[in-house]
């Protein structure tokens, strides 16, 4: 592995229980800075559960219990002294279905910076909103209707709005949970292009059911099955000559 790569996040023996049901069996996995890491595996393999551990979204699920450690830089995010709201501004999330607030496009993006006090003036806030929309590749399409409802945009535009909203609070890591599964191929291509662009400034972890998408957008791939990590490696290795039979069977469509 390239020595210049530095570890941005690290899961150490992460176990997750939903009541008595164990969803993750001790995952140890490093997320490398300014790279896209894809989490793949069949439904129920624990990839989304692991993703949600990275910004403590599992805290919000009734009956969920997490053990082990997740480090962001050198800090354990499961430390009781940690401010979860601040954590989620550092580790943002984009969901499967675009979920803009029922507010204007502008307000959707301005909301985060405002509650985190990132702008001292209206002018600064305007600037953050414009920059975020630009980075999300949406600004030019909607610059004349910033004050129209965010929910009035097309699906692909809504998803880019959600990415702009995540970017607006200057996160370090962006988690994406099947961000393209509700989008058409063109909107998907735009998001993929965007992901490649964003990794210059952010560290990205993406859960996807599309093998081709994982192969296209990521530099590293982690294969999950039945709550365990089967294989982790450079994406090109995983998709051309994986070491593990289960990875091979899954990506070639031989599972089950």
């Amino acid at each position: 592995m390239n020595p210049e790569l530095s570890i941005k996040m690290r899961g150490l023996d992460v176990k997750v229980f939903y009541d008595s049901n164990q969803a993750l069996h001790g995952i140890t996995l490093s997320i490398l800075e300014n790279n896209v890491t894809a989490l793949i595996g069949p439904s129920g393999c624990g990839k989304s559960t692991f993703l949600r551990c990275l910004n403590r979204m599992n805290d919000t699920i009734e009956g969920a219990r997490v053990t082990g450690h997740v480090f962001l830089d050198e800090e354990d995010i499961y430390d009781s002294s940690l401010d979860v709201v601040e954590l989620r501004s550092r580790v943002g999330m984009v969901f499967q279905k675009p979920n803009p607030f029922p507010k204007s496009i502008y307000e959707n993006v301005a909301y985060g910076p405002r509650i985190h006090g990132l702008a001292r003036s209206r002018l600064e806030l305007d600037e953050i909103v414009e920059k975020s929309l630009l980075k999300a590749g949406l600004f030019n399409e909607i610059k004349d209707r910033l004050h129209d409802a965010g929910t009035g945009l097309s699906g692909g535009q809504q998803q880019r709005l959600c990415i702009a909203r995540a970017i607006a609070v200057s996160p370090e890591v962006i988690l994406m949970d099947e961000p393209c599964s509700a989008l058409d191929p063109i909107a998907t291509a735009r998001i993929e292009e965007l992901i490649d662009d964003l990794r210059k400034n952010y560290t990205i972890v993406i859960v996807t059911h599309s093998m081709q998408q994982a192969a296209r957008v990521s530099q590293f791939t982690a294969m999950f099955h039945l709550g365990t990590l089967i294989e982790f490696g450079a994406t090109e290795t995983i998709f051309t000559s994986p070491k593990e039979q289960r990875t091979q069977d899954y990506i070639t469509g031989r599972f089950g």
Partner: peptide
Amino acid sequence: RQPMAVDLR
């Protein structure tokens, strides 16, 4: 089919 791994090889 967008073959992968051993199939692609």
